[in-house]
């Protein structure tokens, strides 16, 4: 399995709960059932152990090992309660899967009854096999969904017949919306990744847009970011309606800043932003009129799509 797959599994075991993966139709036995009956249950269902349950609650666990002990020793008593393990470790259904995996790993248990938190009734069972099966299923679903999405989008330019194809993405940015600052850049980056754009290209576009987006949030009442993806280039247009930049040359000087303190506290406003946009783009044009607003055009060229 590749690194991404391993990472996904690690993520899943921290993400999924025991209840998500447990086997729900639990075969269980009452403590008064005979060991003969246990032998039949294990054989018929091709399982190696079952939880012992009284009034819905876990009171023990009995496995094929206990059955062998009984067969060889034939000691006192022939009920399940005489041979079962009484100190049963259980897991709650809302516990994370990692908890169950740690127990299997550290204590060497073969199975863990799953109980609900309120009345401690047995609601399911987990074994290593059940966990592996559910993880593989989750991975498969996730892998297929992303593959299909990537395939569809990355073949967009090939599948559409026209003399010229351009994908246009338009986003509105609210002035002062610091909490969502950078969300547009993040979304555009993800879209460009799915379009199979080269990493160095989408990274430059995303950084330029991020800086422009933060400028809209910090210094204007909001604006619009439009991205036009063509086979040969990505063009970005950022527009706002004020207050405008009095001297664009000044604004482009490294370290020049009119940022208030609250902007600086957020880690911005050091007079680097516009420079950064320029550095990331192959072409940058700024048109600004005080009182009317600013229009920023950026182009990033790409050799092949």
């Amino acid at each position: 399995m590749n690194n991404a797959g391993i990472g996904k599994i690690q993520e899943l075991i921290y993400d999924l709960s025991v209840g998500d993966v447990m086997k729900k139709d639990v075969i269980s036995l009452s403590p008064d059932i005979s060991m003969y009956k246990l032998k039949e249950v294990l054989r018929k269902n091709r399982i190696s152990g079952v939880p012992v349950v009284k009034n819905g609650c876990s009171v023990g666990i009995i496995s094929i090992e206990d059955l062998i002990n009984w067969l060889t020793k034939k000691g006192a008593g022939s009920s399940v309660k005489d041979w079962m393990t009484k100190d049963v470790v259980t897991v709650y259904e809302d516990e994370k899967l990692i908890q169950a995996i740690s127990l299997f790993d550290q204590k060497g248990y073969g199975r863990l009854p799953v109980v609900e938190r309120k009345e401690k009734k047995v609601v399911g069972i987990v074994t290593k096999g059940v966990i592996i099966e559910s993880l593989l299923r989750e991975i498969e679903i996730d892998y297929h969904e992303e593959e299909i999405r990537r395939y569809r989008v990355s073949h967009f330019f090939e599948d559409v017949t026209a003399d010229s194809v351009t994908i246009g993405l338009i986003y509105q940015v609210k002035g002062g919306d610091v909490m969502n600052g950078g969300a547009v850049a993040g979304n555009i980056k993800k879209t460009l990744q799915r379009l199979d754009i080269k990493p160095d290209i989408y990274r430059r576009v995303a950084i330029a847009i991020y800086e422009a987006e933060m400028n809209l949030i910090f210094y204007t009442d909001g604006g619009e970011i439009s991205v036009y993806i063509k086979p040969e280039s990505i063009c970005v247009n950022v527009q706002d309606h004020g207050p405008g930049i009095p001297d664009v040359k000044d604004a482009l000087r490294l370290g020049f800043s009119t940022a208030p303190n609250w902007v600086r506290e957020l880690g911005f406003g050091a007079g680097i932003g516009l420079n950064n946009i320029q550095r990331c783009s192959d072409k940058m044009i700024i048109n600004s009129t005080v009182g009317r607003g600013t229009i920023l055009d950026i182009t990033v060229n790409m050799e092949t799509l």
């Binding site: 909490m179 850049a185 993040g186 980056k189 800086e211 880690g267 050091a270 680097i272 420079n275 950064n276």
Partner: peptide
């Protein structure tokens, strides 16, 4: 903005800022 200027993919970022902008910056 400094981070966006110099940082390279798959780098460890050390910072004293704890707001969501750090994560947005890291993501981009």
């Amino acid at each position: 903005s400094d981070v966006l200027t110099f940082i390279q993919p798959d780098t460890l970022l050390l910072t004293g800022l704890i707001n969501p902008q750090v994560v947005r910056t890291a993501d981009v």
